[in-house]
């Protein structure tokens, strides 16, 4: 019964619901019909959809711009990988500590930002600063390989789901589960008291505070939830790729890649980050393919493409693709059509 302007699932029409179910079904059977390459592309899509959803909790729900989410990916990845390599602790147990470490890091940033009134762009700079410190710092932590990289043992043909060792299809389904889980969690959060308070804080902090919302608490919980979810994405990444380099995991470029799906799909919406990932990643792949086929070797062309895509979106669909698409295809009820 909530307002359609919030893109709540309760505002989804029958047609929207049908499309959602079809998409879910398609994703479940995809590995049976798709080849290895396509499965790997889809896994990447799902990974970006997932971390985009995690980022969306901060920016989309609570209005907190983080440009350093690679920090939480990296911490999640390194903590779980270190536990596995050094102590033989599998990722299912390791992810608890991985999330905890990321939450602590997020809360330190949040505390500094919110206690001392660091707002907007300056808060974003703070998040970048922490990610950069981690990037440079991990270069020197030899216990996890330093700048030379950290590697997880790989056994060909191993199938040990309890330790997240197995075929690409296993990882595909884990990534799918993460996306679905994050979707239901985001939806539940938006429906909760906390969710309403987040939106109020995002829209008009002074009025939220006057309505009894503890700004500091609301913002800290948003950071905690977002960083914990993002760290899970890091755990996945460590066990999927089996190698970690500080220069990559903590890079500014990675932080940007994480926020693009939500911006393209629609910040603050439930479906936006997922749709955004399904648009951007395949386009990026196609571009890489074309570049290679054409024998062109222009480093940075993909980044240039992402930049151009961003400009197009910001200029023509500043709300993102999803709100527009949902309106055009009648997937959600419009204001005034009744709840």
């Amino acid at each position: 019964m909530s307002g359609p302007s919030r893109m709540m699932p309760s505002g989804v029409t029958g047609r929207g619901m049908m499309l959602l179910v079809l998409a879910a079904l398609g994703l479940v059977i995809a590995p049976f019909v798709a080849d290895r390459y396509l499965v790997s592309v889809l896994t990447t899509v799902l990974w970006f959809a997932y971390v985009g959803q995690a980022w969306n909790v901060m920016m989309g729900f609570s209005g907190l711009l983080s440009l350093g989410h690679a920090l939480y990916v990296g911490l999640g990845a390194y903590v779980s990988a270190a536990l596995f390599v050094h102590f033989g602790i599998g990722p299912w147990a390791g992810m608890v500590l991985a999330m905890l470490v990321a939450v602590v890091a997020g809360c330190v940033i949040g505390f500094l930002g919110f206690r001392f009134g660091v707002k907007g762009v300056h808060f974003a700079l703070l998040t970048i600063a922490f990610a950069e410190v981690a990037r440079i710092g991990f270069d020197h932590i030899t216990w996890v390989g330093g700048s030379g990289g950290f590697f997880l043992p790989v056994e060909a043909g191993a199938s040990d789901p309890l330790n997240l060792r197995g075929s690409p299809v296993l990882f595909y389904y884990v990534a799918l589960a993460l996306v679905v889980g994050a979707l239901f969690l985001s939806r539940a959060l938006l429906h909760s008291r906390l969710g309403y308070q987040w939106l109020a804080v995002r829209e008009e902090p002074d009025a939220a505070e006057a309505s009894g919302v503890d700004l500091f608490r609301a913002r800290m919980t948003a950071v905690a939830v977002s960083s914990a979810l993002t760290a899970l994405g890091g755990v996945f990444q460590a066990f999927y790729f089996n190698n970690l380099f500080p220069e990559q995991v903590f890079s500014m470029g990675r932080s940007i890649e994480i926020i693009l799906p939500a911006i393209v799909g629609g910040i603050g919406t439930l479906v936006g980050p997922i749709l955004g990932a399904f648009i951007l990643t395949p386009l990026g792949e196609a571009l890489t393919f074309l570049i290679e086929a054409g024998g062109l070797d222009l480093p940075g062309l993909k980044q240039l493409f992402y930049g151009a895509a961003l400009v197009v979106i910001v200029v023509f669909r500043p709300e993102g693709v999803w709100p527009w698409l949902a309106r055009r295809l009648g997937l959600v009820r419009q204001p005034g059509e009744g709840a």
Partner: peptide, 8 residues
């Protein structure tokens, strides 16, 4: 006035 503009 400070409404939460995007909310209903």
């Amino acid at each position: 006035v400070k409404p939460f503009g995007q909310l209903t």
